[in-house]
Structures are given as structure tokens and as C-alpha cells.
Nucleic acid binder design. Structure first.
Lengths: 131, 131
DNA sequence: GTGCAAATGCAAATGAGTTGCAATTAAAAT
DNA sequence: ATTTTAATTGCAACTCATTTGCATTTGCAC
């Protein structure tokens, strides 16, 4: 295993992810890269993001439109997202209420013998600037 | 507008939906139909389900695998789902905690000016029989 | 410089879901 | 009973996000 090679694309992707409050999709990312004159191959971009996720530097969420959105893990606590149906922006929400309010998910299960490994919670609606 | 025509496929689909506790996908539905000797065209099936949803007889949820699952609305209150990652079954959960525990989602939003129109909440894990 | 693993690019494939259009069917009107 | 009309169906082709195979390039290590 050698040191991971640095690439312009990787650097720029990290830069974009660092400078947005939102989770962004591959196509949104490609658009942003295009505005700074970079047109990476989409396969490359998918692989780069996959790597960031596998190294836990980033995480991805997939909304009910079937599209995955990425964000840097950074120092943010576990949280969920708001998808604006007008502008397709994925806003990060405050700390997950399931954790902060210690909600017992077991009660909701068909049987206490089910093992919950993950949960997702997405809000859908219209953001402030789209109203 | 004439009376809606009855078809074997519609009847069998309703029958299957009525006799399962779970939400099922189009491919799961096609498999079940196949076991009783019915091989409907997938377009037909999609359109039939779309109609059931539009008439509020059924509802659909879409999980992070990008697949939609359908269930009859019937008398069930608003609830969410548990997806078993081993057997691909989508179990219905108890009444939505956001409603029963009157959780205020506004607090989680970036701004109170955001309008929440819908939310989804899915659990992922392993079901009782797959453990 | 040579070798080797990582990174890249392209084209093609995947898979859920959709669309256009022609063909069929059943209900309504005659 | 026959015609008219609208709903239903089936097929092929398409969309779109994502993935895969494979050949090529690149850059670190020796």
C-alpha cells in the first residue's frame, strides 16, 4: 500500500464539500466543478466519493428520489436532512432527535428481536428561499 | 368517466396486498403473481399501483435502495418501516413516534421558515427470522 | 529508469421505473 | 346486437443514477 496519490479533482471535491453546508449529489458536484473549469469523468467522481465514504471522511445519504448526496463527516454529530422539492437542495438538520431525546425505537418494532443497525429520517418540503 | 373495469390482475394484486403485513416492491409482487400463474406486464403493474396510490387505496414508500414498496392504506395509522437487509422484507412499524410523541420538527430545521410537507423514517437491520 | 499499484477514461451494462404507441377489451350508447 | 368510446394492456424503447470491464495513464518506490 502506497501513499494515496493527490489529484486536482480530489482536492477540489474536498474544497467544495468543505465550503457547503449541504449534502450534494454527484451531478450537483459535477456542475460545481464545471464552474471552476474541471470536468472529471463521472466514474472517477463516483469512485472518489466511494473512497471518501469508505475511509469515513464522508458519508452519503440516499433520498427517496433514489439519488445519493454526500457530505464531509467532519465534526458534525449524527443528523438528518431536509430536501427542498423546489431547488433540490439537501439541508443538514440539527442533531438527530432519536438520539437527543433518547427515543426507544424498540417499541416500534414488530418484535424486540429485530436488530436495528441504522435509521434514516428525511424531511421533504420547501426551504426558506424558495417560498 | 365510466366505472373502473375489473381485471384479474387488479384483483390478484389487491388480494396479495391484503394478505401481507409487509410493504412489497414491484418485483416481489411479480414473483408472487408468478407463483399463482399470473405474469403481468411490468408496465401494467406499475400503472395499476400508480392508480391505487392516486386513489389513496394504497401508498408507497421508497427506501434508500431506490426501490418503491407498496401497501394498502386500509385502517392503519401513519407509520414507518423496517427493512431487513438479509431478506429484503419491509415490515410495517407501529404508529409514527413523531406523531404519537408530538415531536416538534421545527426545532431541527435550519430556519422556522422552512415548510415541512412530508417526512420519512426508515429503520434498517435484521429481522427476527434472519438472525 | 523500471516496475507496480493507484488512478483515469470510455463505452457498455444494470436495473428500477417511464413513455409512446399500437392493439385489445369492455362498458355505454345507439 | 352493433357501433362508439374510453379504459386497459403489451411491447419496445427510453431515462437516469450508478456500476463494471478493460485498456491506458500516472506517479510513487526502488
Amino acid at each position: 500500500m502506497t501513499i494515496q496519490r493527490k489529484t486536482i479533482v480530489l482536492e477540489k471535491v474536498l474544497e467544495i464539500l468543505q465550503h457547503t453546508q449541504n449534502a450534494i449529489s454527484v451531478s450537483q458536484l459535477m456542475d460545481k466543478l464545471e464552474t471552476i473549469g474541471i470536468r472529471p469523468n463521472k466514474t472517477t467522481l463516483y469512485r472518489l466519493l466511494e473512497k471518501l465514504v469508505s475511509t469515513t471522511d464522508a458519508l452519503s445519504i440516499t433520498l427517496k428520489n433514489g439519488i445519493s448526496y454526500y457530505e464531509l463527516r467532519q465534526k458534525r454529530p449524527h443528523h438528518h436532512h431536509f430536501y427542498c422539492t423546489k431547488c433540490d437542495t439537501v439541508f443538514c438538520l440539527g442533531s438527530c432527535h432519536v438520539h437527543t431525546q433518547k427515543i426507544d425505537l424498540t417499541q416500534l418494532l414488530p418484535s424486540p428481536k429485530f436488530t436495528v443497525e441504522a435509521h434514516d429520517f428525511n424531511l421533504y418540503g420547501v426551504c426558506e428561499s424558495c417560498r
